[in-house]
Design a protein around this nucleic acid. Structure first.
Lengths: 108, 108
DNA sequence: CAAAAAGTTGGACGCTCATCAAACTGGCTC
DNA sequence: GAGCCAGTTTGATGAGCGTCCAACTTTTTG
């Protein structure tokens, strides 16, 4: 039940994925999603300390790049990584980023 | 032969590498370097069609991020990818990007 | 020594982007 | 239905970035 626009797996663009990953806030979002699985917007925003509209902006970039999938349930939206889709489209790419995040953390 | 400032392998930062890759011009530079090996600045700039100072700007971002190594020889500078260093620091990351570039090209 | 060749640097311009605040939308609850 | 809840959208602001041009440095060549 996803009302929001997501790119199909074959339509995911490398440059857009890399651009979406090239921001420390979004890297931290991706890091948390990889460790904690599916999260709501408020669940994600609670530890970041930015305005909710700023977070919404980042969710959109992540979603439109193809990195995340957003599912609506009631008035909440659950966000998760599209790990399988990205593995099909760009094998090893997301997983190596997640591995790098585990090694050095979002700031390293 | 004074060497330019390059980060040590352990000092390469994930966010900086991703930011360096998040530009279509730099992605094309990385693509050409991966297919043709070591190239000079003019060799790289010949097919891109941007001003040489603009290219110089991109070379610096790539070098300072840790993606490339620049070696001076006479009045020319040779640029190549730091594939082994990056493999040590972030296993699979650069190689998966290069693989993605081979599949879809710098614009896909 | 003068001129060319290969890049770099600094300034300027326009555009994008991250951020916040306020208003808005759709869904739930009392 | 009134009011709250979870996010989004719009507008404004300030910082950063990609690009070009001109001037500069360094190295090679005539």
């Amino acid at each position: 039940m996803s009302l929001l626009p997501h790119p199909a797996t074959e339509e995911i663009q490398l440059a857009e994925v890399l651009r979406a990953l090239a921001d420390p806030v979004r890297l931290e979002i991706v890091d948390r999603l990889s460790r904690e699985g599916e999260l709501t917007c408020t669940g994600l925003g609670s530890e970041v300390g930015l305005h909710k509209s700023t977070m919404s902006h980042h969710y959109r970039i992540l979603r439109e790049s193809g990195l995340t999938l957003t599912r609506q349930e009631g008035r909440r939206k659950f966000i998760r990584l599209r790990r399988e889709d990205l593995e099909k489209r760009f094998p090893g790419l997301l997983e190596s980023v997640l591995d790098a995040l585990e090694r050095t953390g979002p700031q390293g």
